[in-house]
Amino acid sequence: MRVPDFLPRDVAGDLRRELLHGLEYERVELGDITRQWRARRPLGDVYFGSMLRRPGWQTPASVVAALEWFESATFLDWLSEVAGEELSFRRPVTAYRMTRSDRLCLHDDMSDPDHAVSVAYNLSRGWRAEWGGATLFGEVAGVTALETPVDSPIELRQWRIVHERRFVPEFNSLLVMRLDERYAHGVDEVRVDHARLALVGIYGRRLS
């Protein structure tokens, strides 16, 4: 499901500026199936620790509060109600930036069997469908192993989906996606030089 106008517009604007001008990014490429920029964190820490800022950049208090809110009990309670099951915070949201020729292969995010929900908060202003970069979501029809480069951190696979749904980036909207081996999602190729910006997080089933 997609929730429009998710945060106050001024907060969304502050977050967009943070992703555009304040964060440092590192290149992520997996074979020829995934190309994108991911916010850098301290060396050796991909998903935890604070995202690194450019020298001299001052992060607004509104951005700090918004990033913390994605980890809050209030957000978790709301997300649990949407998902229909009790969820727990697993790792901080991470900023991703994509531009021309970047893409994210279909995948299921089930590296942990307790993963339950992925959220993608979009900060791409004025995006058009013909620019590519749509989020794809569907039911898995098959998975094929691919030749994996020796330096790849994961085994590369190719998912095929049916009943595909496409979500064109929409500024200040939150996309909530069910995680399960029955479903896969990804981002099709960006065809323009404009920056596609998003914060992405994963939430798991609450452990008893």
Rank of each mutant, 00 (worst) to 15 (best):
D45Q: 12
L79I: 04
V82H: 06
W131M: 15
A73T: 05
T99S: 15
L106Y: 00
N122Q: 12
G22P: 09
P55D: 12
V3F: 12
S62P: 14
A120S: 11
S118N: 02
R125T: 14
F48A: 09
T59D: 06
I154Q: 08
E164Q: 11
D32G: 03
F48L: 11
L67I: 00
R27K: 01
G126Q: 07
S208H: 09
S173Q: 02
V11K: 14
V192H: 04
R128H: 11
F6P: 13
P113C: 08
P113W: 02
S72H: 11
R100V: 15
R103Y: 04
D5S: 14
D14M: 05
R35H: 08
S80W: 05
R128C: 15
L106K: 00
P42M: 04
D193A: 05
V93N: 00
S173F: 04
V143N: 08
F171H: 13
L19T: 09
R157Q: 02
P149W: 08
D112C: 05
R196I: 10
S173N: 00
D45I: 05
L19R: 01
D112N: 15
L156H: 01
T94L: 03
M110W: 00
L106E: 09
D188F: 08
D14C: 10
L67R: 05
D77C: 11
L7T: 11
E86H: 07
V187T: 13
L67N: 12
R100Q: 14
A116H: 05
R17N: 13
D108C: 07
E86Q: 03
V168S: 14
R38S: 00
R196L: 14
L197H: 06
R165Q: 15
L106M: 06
S72C: 08
L19S: 02
E85F: 13
V63A: 05
V46Y: 10
R17H: 09
H163V: 04
A65T: 08
R16Q: 15
T148F: 03
F89P: 00
W69V: 10
R9Q: 15
S124P: 08
A66G: 12
P60L: 01
S111E: 05
V176F: 01
V192N: 10
R165Y: 13
E130M: 11
A198Q: 00
Y25V: 08
Y121G: 09
L43Q: 10
W78N: 04
L199D: 03
V168W: 06
S152Y: 07
D32P: 08
R27Q: 00
L15S: 13
L123T: 01
D193N: 11
A39K: 01
F6N: 11
S50I: 06
A120Y: 11
R206E: 01
G126E: 10
T34F: 10
R90L: 03
S62N: 10
D180A: 06
E155V: 13
S208Y: 05
V64C: 03
R103L: 06
V168M: 09
Y25M: 03
S101E: 14
L207S: 02
E81R: 09
W69P: 13
R125I: 14
Y96V: 07
P55F: 09
R17I: 06
S72D: 12
Q36Y: 14
A120W: 08
W78P: 00
L123Q: 02
V119G: 00
